[in-house]
Simulated scan of single mutants.
Amino acid sequence: MAGDELDELYSAPPEEFTALRGKLAAAAKKRGDTDAAKRIAAARKPTTAAWVVNRLAHTNEDAIRSLADLGDRLRAAHAAMDGAAIRELSAEQRSLVDELVRAAFDAADIKNPSAALREDVTGTLQAAIADPEVANRLGRLTKAERWSGFGDFGATTAVSSSARSSRSEPKPKAEPSRTHDKSRSGGREEEDDRSARAVEDAKAALAEAERAKDEADDELSDRQTDLAVARLRRDEMRQRLEEAERSLDAADEAYSEAKKASHDATDLVKKAKTRLKDVQRAR
């Protein structure tokens, strides 16, 4: 039962995650499923990139199968050291990842994702191809994944990374036409270079700020999760304490009744002994 509720939780928009987690945990606790309540309460809020990929996994089962299938074929090609197959499958990987990145943002209804968010989603899908463990966690990811590229699978990620870098690098500027006024041309070129550097610096700063925000949101989610788990444990301890106190009251009452019965029995024994003595003297 907890599995279905976790799927519901991880497919919900990030802004609804915390409230829904509390609601589902409370429902599980109410029906007496303590283990499910703990699992739900311990679920960590996903970053935006993780949620985008989770959303894709929940709305497009073909995407998961395609990633897993391509990963299997790439591993087989690397194991066989089949260069032609590796090159062909690497091209297929780039095409599939690009297609699924677009599908993921469409499913998440994000029209203009930031460069940092797009990079994190892309990296996560590539990691799912390279690592079966990541592929198995699709749908319940809590943060963006990144595959190192080391090991038998290295060539594929190297190709993907270089392709992504080549797309992101600015194209070299065409050499300006020479005029008789070299000083004016040189000044304009320097100004253009400064402007281009300023734009790139601003983009880099924005990407870093967005990544820092994701990390801060992730930390906040962790603390919210810890708080939810602590509250659940406190409630459980309170319930156990109440049950223990009820058991203590019942035991105390039973002891009092048993003690009274013992006293009554002692009185009966005394009376019986007295009567026996009286009967014996009368004879």
Score class of each variant (00 low, 15 high):
K173Y: 01
E175K: 13
E175N: 06
E175I: 09
P176Y: 02
S177R: 06
R178W: 12
T179A: 04
D181Y: 03
D181N: 15
K182H: 10
K182A: 13
S185E: 14
S185V: 15
S185C: 05
G186H: 13
G186I: 11
R188P: 01
R188F: 05
E189P: 02
E189K: 09
E189V: 11
E191D: 12
D192F: 00
D193G: 00
R194A: 08
R194N: 02
R194L: 08
R194E: 04
R194K: 08
R197S: 03
A198Y: 01
V199P: 00
E200Q: 14
D201T: 01
K203H: 04
A204D: 07
A205P: 00
A205I: 01
A205Q: 08
L206R: 10
L206D: 02
A207N: 06
A207G: 03
E208A: 13
E208L: 06
A209Q: 06
E210V: 05
A212M: 07
K213L: 08
D214R: 07
D214Y: 02
E215M: 06
E215G: 02
D217L: 04
D218S: 12
D218A: 15
L220I: 10
L220P: 02
L220Q: 15
S221P: 01
D222C: 07
D222R: 15
D222P: 00
R223E: 06
Q224E: 15
L227G: 04
A230H: 06
A230K: 13
R231M: 10
L232H: 13
R233D: 14
D235F: 12
E236I: 09
M237G: 02
M237W: 13
M237P: 00
R238C: 03
Q239E: 14
Q239F: 03
Q239H: 08
R240W: 00
E242S: 12
E243S: 12
A244S: 05
A244E: 05
E245Q: 11
R246C: 00
R246I: 00
S247G: 07
L248T: 09
D249I: 03
A251F: 05
A251T: 07
D252N: 07
E253G: 04
A254I: 03
Y255H: 10
S256A: 15
A258Q: 14
A258F: 08
K259T: 12
K259F: 15
K260E: 14
K260F: 06
K260D: 13
A261F: 10
S262D: 11
S262T: 07
H263F: 11
D264M: 13
T266C: 04
D267P: 01
L268S: 09
V269M: 08
V269S: 01
K270H: 09
K270M: 12
K270Q: 09
A272G: 14
K273A: 11
K273W: 03
T274W: 03
R275S: 11
L276A: 14
D278R: 14
R281K: 15
